[in-house]
Amino acid sequence: MTAEGSYSRLDDDDYPAYTMGRAAEMLGTTQGFLRAVGEARLITPLRSEGGHRRYSRYQLRIAARARELVDQGTPIEAACRIIILEDQLEEAQRINAEYRRAAESVNSPPEV
Protein backbone atom coordinates (compact mmCIF):
# COMPACT_ATOMS: atom_id res chain seq x y z
CA MET A 1 0.00 0.00 0.00
CA THR A 2 1.25 3.46 -0.81
CA ALA A 3 1.67 6.13 1.82
CA GLU A 4 -0.94 8.19 -0.01
CA GLY A 5 -3.44 5.31 0.27
CA SER A 6 -2.92 4.97 4.01
CA TYR A 7 -3.32 8.73 4.53
CA SER A 8 -6.64 8.75 2.69
CA ARG A 9 -7.99 6.38 5.33
CA LEU A 10 -7.47 9.11 7.91
CA ASP A 11 -10.11 11.14 6.10
CA ASP A 12 -12.56 8.23 6.08
CA ASP A 13 -15.18 8.63 8.84
CA ASP A 14 -15.90 4.90 8.74
CA TYR A 15 -12.32 3.63 8.89
CA PRO A 16 -11.81 1.77 12.21
CA ALA A 17 -8.66 3.60 13.25
CA TYR A 18 -9.01 3.70 17.03
CA THR A 19 -8.36 0.99 19.59
CA MET A 20 -10.78 0.59 22.46
CA GLY A 21 -8.32 2.18 24.88
CA ARG A 22 -7.71 5.18 22.64
CA ALA A 23 -11.43 5.56 21.91
CA ALA A 24 -12.28 5.52 25.62
CA GLU A 25 -9.55 8.05 26.29
CA MET A 26 -10.77 10.36 23.53
CA LEU A 27 -14.35 10.21 24.88
CA GLY A 28 -13.27 10.59 28.50
CA THR A 29 -15.04 7.37 29.41
CA THR A 30 -14.22 3.78 30.25
CA GLN A 31 -13.74 0.75 28.05
CA GLY A 32 -16.70 -0.75 29.91
CA PHE A 33 -18.89 2.05 28.59
CA LEU A 34 -17.82 1.25 25.03
CA ARG A 35 -18.56 -2.43 25.63
CA ALA A 36 -22.01 -1.48 26.99
CA VAL A 37 -22.96 0.60 23.93
CA GLY A 38 -21.78 -2.31 21.80
CA GLU A 39 -23.91 -4.77 23.78
CA ALA A 40 -26.89 -2.41 23.33
CA ARG A 41 -26.15 -2.62 19.58
CA LEU A 42 -25.72 1.12 19.22
CA ILE A 43 -22.34 0.64 17.58
CA THR A 44 -20.59 -2.48 16.35
CA PRO A 45 -16.83 -2.04 16.27
CA LEU A 46 -14.81 -3.89 13.70
CA ARG A 47 -12.40 -6.50 14.99
CA SER A 48 -8.72 -6.57 14.16
CA GLU A 49 -7.11 -9.82 13.04
CA GLY A 50 -6.20 -10.35 16.69
CA GLY A 51 -9.84 -9.88 17.77
CA HIS A 52 -9.41 -6.40 19.26
CA ARG A 53 -12.17 -3.82 18.87
CA ARG A 54 -11.52 -0.92 16.49
CA TYR A 55 -13.69 2.18 16.29
CA SER A 56 -14.27 4.74 13.55
CA ARG A 57 -14.73 8.47 14.02
CA TYR A 58 -18.39 8.07 13.13
CA GLN A 59 -18.81 5.46 15.89
CA LEU A 60 -17.02 7.72 18.35
CA ARG A 61 -19.48 10.54 17.61
CA ILE A 62 -22.38 8.20 18.31
CA ALA A 63 -20.76 6.97 21.52
CA ALA A 64 -20.13 10.59 22.57
CA ARG A 65 -23.85 11.34 22.10
CA ALA A 66 -24.69 8.31 24.27
CA ARG A 67 -22.28 9.54 26.91
CA GLU A 68 -23.96 12.97 26.94
CA LEU A 69 -27.33 11.34 27.61
CA VAL A 70 -25.91 9.04 30.28
CA ASP A 71 -24.17 11.99 31.95
CA GLN A 72 -27.60 13.69 32.09
CA GLY A 73 -28.99 10.71 34.00
CA THR A 74 -30.45 8.59 31.21
CA PRO A 75 -29.87 4.84 31.67
CA ILE A 76 -27.46 3.53 29.04
CA GLU A 77 -30.00 1.20 27.42
CA ALA A 78 -32.48 4.08 27.09
CA ALA A 79 -29.78 6.42 25.75
CA CYS A 80 -28.88 3.90 23.06
CA ARG A 81 -32.54 3.44 22.11
CA ILE A 82 -33.05 7.23 21.92
CA ILE A 83 -30.08 7.59 19.57
CA ILE A 84 -31.29 4.73 17.37
CA LEU A 85 -34.75 6.32 17.16
CA GLU A 86 -33.26 9.75 16.42
CA ASP A 87 -31.26 8.21 13.58
CA GLN A 88 -34.35 6.44 12.19
CA LEU A 89 -36.35 9.67 12.37
CA GLU A 90 -33.63 11.60 10.56
CA GLU A 91 -33.52 8.98 7.81
CA ALA A 92 -37.34 8.99 7.46
CA GLN A 93 -37.33 12.79 7.20
CA ARG A 94 -34.63 12.66 4.53
CA ILE A 95 -36.61 10.13 2.50
CA ASN A 96 -39.80 12.19 2.93
CA ALA A 97 -38.03 15.29 1.64
CA GLU A 98 -36.82 13.36 -1.41
CA TYR A 99 -40.37 12.18 -2.13
CA ARG A 100 -41.69 15.73 -1.77
CA ARG A 101 -39.07 17.08 -4.18
CA ALA A 102 -39.86 14.33 -6.70
CA ALA A 103 -43.61 14.97 -6.41
CA GLU A 104 -43.13 18.72 -6.84
CA SER A 105 -41.07 18.23 -9.98
CA VAL A 106 -43.72 15.91 -11.46
CA ASN A 107 -46.62 18.21 -10.53
CA SER A 108 -45.05 21.52 -11.53
CA PRO A 109 -46.43 23.07 -14.75
CA PRO A 110 -44.11 23.00 -17.75
CA GLU A 111 -42.29 26.23 -18.50
CA VAL A 112 -43.37 27.98 -21.66
Rank of each mutant, 00 (worst) to 15 (best):
M1I: 08
E4N: 09
E4W: 12
G5S: 10
S6W: 15
S6P: 04
S6N: 05
D11P: 03
D12M: 03
D13Q: 09
Y15W: 04
Y15F: 08
P16M: 08
A17P: 05
T19V: 13
M20E: 11
M20I: 10
M20G: 05
G21P: 07
A23V: 12
A24D: 02
G28T: 10
T29P: 14
T29E: 09
T30N: 05
Q31I: 04
Q31G: 03
G32R: 06
F33Y: 14
L34I: 14
R35Y: 05
R35G: 11
R35A: 09
R35I: 14
A36F: 05
G38Y: 04
L42S: 04
T44Y: 15
P45R: 11
L46Q: 10
G50E: 15
G50Y: 11
G51F: 12
G51P: 09
R54C: 10
R54T: 07
S56N: 13
R57W: 11
Y58P: 06
Y58M: 12
Q59E: 13
Q59V: 14
Q59I: 12
R65K: 05
R65Y: 01
A66R: 01
A66W: 00
R67W: 02
E68F: 03
E68S: 08
V70F: 00
D71M: 01
Q72M: 02
T74H: 00
A78F: 04
A79P: 15
A79I: 00
R81A: 01
I83W: 00
I83D: 01
I84C: 01
D87S: 15
Q88W: 07
L89A: 14
E90C: 06
E91F: 00
Q93L: 06
R94D: 00
R94Q: 03
R94H: 05
R94I: 00
I95L: 14
I95Q: 10
N96T: 09
N96D: 10
Y99L: 10
R100Q: 11
A102Y: 07
A103K: 14
A103F: 15
S105N: 13
V106L: 12
N107I: 09
P109F: 13
P109T: 11
P110T: 10
V112K: 06
V112W: 08
V112C: 06
